[in-house]
């Protein structure tokens, strides 16, 4: 079957198998390998992307279901050479170690801050609670998101923005 969707602002059309998972569509068919895969049971969240600005586990969405939607992956966070404050926050606060969970964590954080620019620590923890990080112990991820929230409140220009 044929599917058409917008990925990081660009429309793509591909011939796919009906059963193809969105995560494999993004990784193997589009070559956007920043989106990762880490489990068989929708538990880890390394595959999180934004679909119409909502975080979804792309291992649990068929590529066909994303037809006509706006998909944003980690590769779409940086816009015109400017990093998203969330990306900068993760660097500044050591929010990543191996970096495998990081794309998913950052996209969830992006969606959270778009929704709630000044989240509490608990709100941040809740937002990322469907995702696992095996390296950081989460405190530095929380700080990274807080860093981004502060940066955005100090210069309320939308950096990046929805694609």
């Amino acid at each position: 079957m044929q599917v058409t969707m917008t990925v990081n602002g660009e429309e793509v059309t591909k011939e796919i198998e009906g059963r193809l998972l969105l995560v494999h569509f993004i990784r193997d068919h589009l070559g956007l390998t920043g989106t990762h895969w880490g489990c068989d049971t929708s538990n880890c969240g390394t595959c999180v992307v934004l679909m119409d600005d909502e975080p979804v586990k792309s291992c649990t969405v068929l590529a066909a279901m994303a037809g006509g939607r706006q998909v944003r992956t980690v590769e779409g966070l940086e816009v015109d050479g400017v990093l998203d404050p969330v990306q900068e926050g993760f660097m500044q606060c050591h929010g990543l170690q191996c970096g495998f969970c990081t794309p998913g964590m950052m996209l969830t954080a992006r969606a959270l801050l778009d929704d709630n620019p000044d989240p509490t620590e608990h709100e941040i923890r809740e937002a990322i609670s469907g995702q696992i990080c095996r390296c950081t112990g989460y405190s530095t991820i929380v700080r990274s998101v807080q860093w981004a929230a502060n940066a955005e409140s100090e210069s309320p220009v939308t950096v990046g923005g929805a694609s």
């Binding site: 390998t33 920043g34 990762h36 590769e75 993760f90």
Partner: peptide, 11 residues
């Protein structure tokens, strides 16, 4: 890594 430009084995 924050740009999704790491190179893991499956990549």
């Amino acid at each position: 890594l924050i740009r999704g430009k790491g190179n893991f084995v499956d990549d």
